[in-house]
Computed example of a mutant assay.
Amino acid sequence: MPALYILIPVAIVLVGFAIWLFFWAVDSGQYDDLDGPAHSILFDDDDPMHKAGVSQAQNPDEPSDGEEPPRA
């Protein structure tokens, strides 16, 4: 029974810390883009078509090199 006097406050503090940590992660943007990292492994970094698509996405006003972007 005396162990409960120690374990219950410790458990409450741990739960409070876990809740604070969760809200900190949400506020700092840890869960903003859940799909981006999962899809980024599908593209080959050395693929020139992929790099052309990235540069075209970053600069949409510039004309492309005459190549059409890959269709999804």
Rank of each mutant, 00 (worst) to 15 (best):
G36N: 07
I19H: 08
D65A: 12
I6T: 15
F43V: 11
P70K: 04
S28R: 04
N59P: 03
G29I: 00
F23L: 14
Q56E: 00
D33K: 02
P2S: 15
D32C: 02
D45Y: 06
V15T: 07
I41A: 09
S40P: 01
A57G: 08
M1W: 06
E62A: 13
A3R: 06
I41C: 05
R71F: 15
I41S: 14
K51F: 05
D35R: 12
D35S: 15
W24T: 14
D27A: 09
W20Y: 13
G66Y: 04
L4V: 12
I19E: 00
P70H: 04
G29C: 08
L14S: 08
L14H: 08
D47P: 02
A3I: 09
D35K: 12
I6Y: 05
Q56N: 04
P9S: 10
G16T: 07
G29A: 12
L14A: 11
P2Q: 06
A38L: 12
A52N: 00
P37N: 04
H39R: 15
V54M: 10
A11E: 06
W20Q: 03
G16N: 13
H39T: 13
V15N: 09
W20D: 08
D45Q: 03
D45A: 13
I12Y: 13
V15W: 12
D32N: 10
V26C: 03
F23E: 13
D47Q: 01
F43Y: 11
P37Q: 06
V54N: 02
S28M: 03
V10F: 04
Q58D: 06
A3V: 09
I6S: 12
P9N: 06
D35F: 14
P63Y: 04
D33I: 14
D35M: 15
V15K: 08
P70A: 12
G36E: 12
G36K: 15
E68N: 14
Q58N: 11
L14Q: 09
A52E: 01
G16Y: 14
L14E: 03
Y31H: 13
F17N: 00
F22G: 06
D32T: 13
E67I: 12
A18T: 13
L14K: 03
A72N: 10
L14I: 14
Q56D: 01
P9I: 00
